[in-house]
Each structure stands twice: as C-alpha cells, then as structure tokens.
C-alpha cells in the first residue's frame, strides 16, 4: 500500500467520522429556522403549523403589555412601520415567554421574532422565545431615512 493510499484512507475515515458526527448532531440542535417577512409568513399556511420560524415585522403602536406575574410580554407585529401611516395587513399576536426584551424594543420598532405558532384562546398566537430588535438607522442611515428624520 503506498503512502498516498494510506493517507487517502485515513482522510476518508476522519472525514466520514466528522460528517457522521455533524449529521447526527444537527437534529439535536434547533438550528434551522425559516426567515420570513410577516406577509410571507401569513401567506404560507404550510409553514405556520408549528414549524420554527423567524418572522420580520414592526411592533404595532400601543400594543406592548408586560405581564410580570406570568413573566411574559404580549404585543402585536404588523408588516409596515406604524408611523409611516401606510396600509397594514392583519397584525400577528405575539407572546414572548420571557420579560427579557432587547433595548431597542418599543412601539414601532423593527423586530424579528423567533418561535412558532400555537393555538391560543382568541385564535392563533405566535409564541416567541427570542426577539431581535433593530436600530432603525443601524450604523448607517439609508438616504431615505435621513430625509424623514
């Protein structure tokens, strides 16, 4: 057996082991998540039945309610920013199962909520265990943003 073959066998064995390890562990981690805008999420019922999703939208005005007893935060997400005054579709009821909201979370904030849809007493509710809020200007304002502000 030449050295080349030895090395090739060794490499295949290692690659195989690592690959097997990776493949078996992928299932264990709740890793793969659909990323959708609220419109896409509402338009595609297939992805709504319990699959883990990240949904992008804006916090509806005056919708935030912190339930300290139950350690939950209730709010609604809509598909356009409230202050622009443009038409917005039906909002999504969201319950965050924690009191830990990001600094930038407030009325009108652009957010990404991560979790899945569950049946609630008053219709479906998006149960989120993670929430990201974006700074409206990020690090760099886009030209249109600055024209408004």
């Amino acid at each position: 057996m030449t050295k080349g073959v030895q090395i090739a066998i060794g490499a295949t064995a290692i690659a195989g082991l690592i690959g097997w390890y990776g493949a078996t562990n992928l299932d264990a981690a709740p890793s793969f998540t659909y990323y959708k805008s609220l419109e896409e999420f509402q338009a595609n019922p297939g992805a709504r039945s319990g699959a883990r999703s990240r949904v992008h939208g804006y916090v509806a005005a005056n919708s935030i309610r912190r339930d300290i007893e139950a350690m939950q935060v209730h709010f609604r997400v809509q598909n356009t920013a409230p202050h622009t005054g443009s038409e917005s579709g039906p909002p999504l009821e969201v319950v965050l199962v924690s009191l830990e909201t990001p600094d930038l979370f407030k009325d009108g904030a652009e957010v990404v909520v991560e979790g899945h849809l569950v049946a609630g007493s008053g219709g479906p509710v998006f149960e989120a265990d993670k929430i990201l809020a974006k700074c409206p200007s990020k690090f760099e304002a886009t030209p249109t943003d600055s024209a408004e502000s």
Partner: peptide, 18 residues
C-alpha cells in the same frame, strides 16, 4: 426561494470536536 437561517447552535456542532 425561502430564507433558512441556522442559529448560533449550528456552529459549535463541528467547531467543538474540531
């Protein structure tokens, strides 16, 4: 046609053993 993100839990799966 759909964006699928992998969470931070994806990376250590391999980074750990490596």
């Amino acid at each position: 046609g759909e964006q699928i993100t992998v969470g931070p839990a994806f990376f250590p799966i391999m980074a750990g053993p490596l």
